[in-house]
């Protein structure tokens, strides 16, 4: 019988701990499919974050390391500079990457470290129970912004992709989403490009994946995906924010 669908080899055969309706499962799968397709599982080293994806080291079958909160790009830098022949990626959430780890993010991008960063933006701290994130939307109700995010009091959310794209350093900065089939397909293409860039020695590639958190948003999975479309994507538009190689190609 022909196999028409199977688990990627780069994904371990154990159940995820993620909440029902959480897109982390989809994003893990996309990363694993890309590793399979590029045949890099055996030489890839992944860096897990602190946050909901903290146990990503159990799910990917490549070598893995667990970083302190926000430090994944620094840890990845140490690995890549020691083993340039290996493929190194980080998998981080918004609190990890855009708050406590913003310095590591910006500087690894500025150095054009030849690593791949998967940045999952769901506008909330999930693992700790739904606090306001650096990417929480104005007015968004969270455990630590119970009256809605008041930008006069605690500032504006940060658009990471747009900000990083202002740097000379990075090779590829893009934002995708996983709220519908079309977007999932686009997200996979972007993730594949981000890994291919590293294989080609082009440098720092970051894929911001706009995700959802039904549990902490207090929504059904279906409603959460609708909220991504109605509220998240207008503030965080899908698109390619920097693609140096493509720009060079165009200017020829």
């Amino acid at each position: 019988m022909a196999v028409v669908f199977k688990k990627p080899d780069s994904l371990a055969d154990i159940p995820f701990h993620y909440c029902p309706g959480c897109p982390h499962g989809i994003i893990h799968r996309l990363v694993a499919e890309v590793m399979d397709e590029l045949q890099i599982e055996g030489k890839t080293i992944g860096v897990a974050p602190v946050g909901c994806a903290v146990m990503a080291y159990d799910y990917f079958t490549c070598d893995m390391i667990e970083a302190a909160h926000g430090r994944a790009p620094a840890v990845a830098t140490g690995i890549k500079r020691s083993r340039p022949e290996n493929i190194v990626f980080t998998y981080q959430g918004d609190g990890d990457l855009a708050s406590i780890g913003m310095a590591e993010t910006v500087h690894s991008a500025a150095r054009n470290e030849n690593i791949t960063v998967i940045f999952v933006n769901n506008a909330i701290y999930g693992m700790t129970g739904g606090q306001m994130a650096p990417t929480s939307l104005p007015g968004q109700v969270t455990q630590t912004s119970p009256y809605g995010r008041d930008v006069d009091h605690c500032g504006w959310p940060i658009r990471v992709s747009e900000m990083l794209a202002t740097l000379e350093g990075p090779e590829y900065i893009t934002r995708v989403a996983v709220n519908n089939v079309k977007n999932v397909m686009q997200a996979k293409k972007a993730i594949k490009k981000a890994f291919q860039n590293q294989i080609d020695g082009k440098g720092f590639s970051l894929v911001e994946v706009v995700s959802a958190c039904p549990t902490n948003w207090g929504m059904t999975p279906q409603k959460a995906l609708e909220w991504v479309e109605s509220d998240m994507l207008p503030f965080y538009p899908i698109g390619v924010y920097k693609d140096r190689s493509a720009e060079k190609e165009e200017s020829k």
């Binding site: 860096v47 970083a67 620094a74 840890v75 140490g78 500079r81 500087h107």
Partner: peptide, 26 residues
């Protein structure tokens, strides 16, 4: 060899953590 000036003390020790995990003297 590799000399890298990190953006902070925190980043530098985490680079050490990564390199040590990769098996080199660091």
């Amino acid at each position: 060899g590799v000399f890298l000036q990190a953006e902070s003390e925190i980043a530098s020790i985490n680079m050490v953590y990564g390199a040590a995990a990769a098996g080199v003297r660091v």
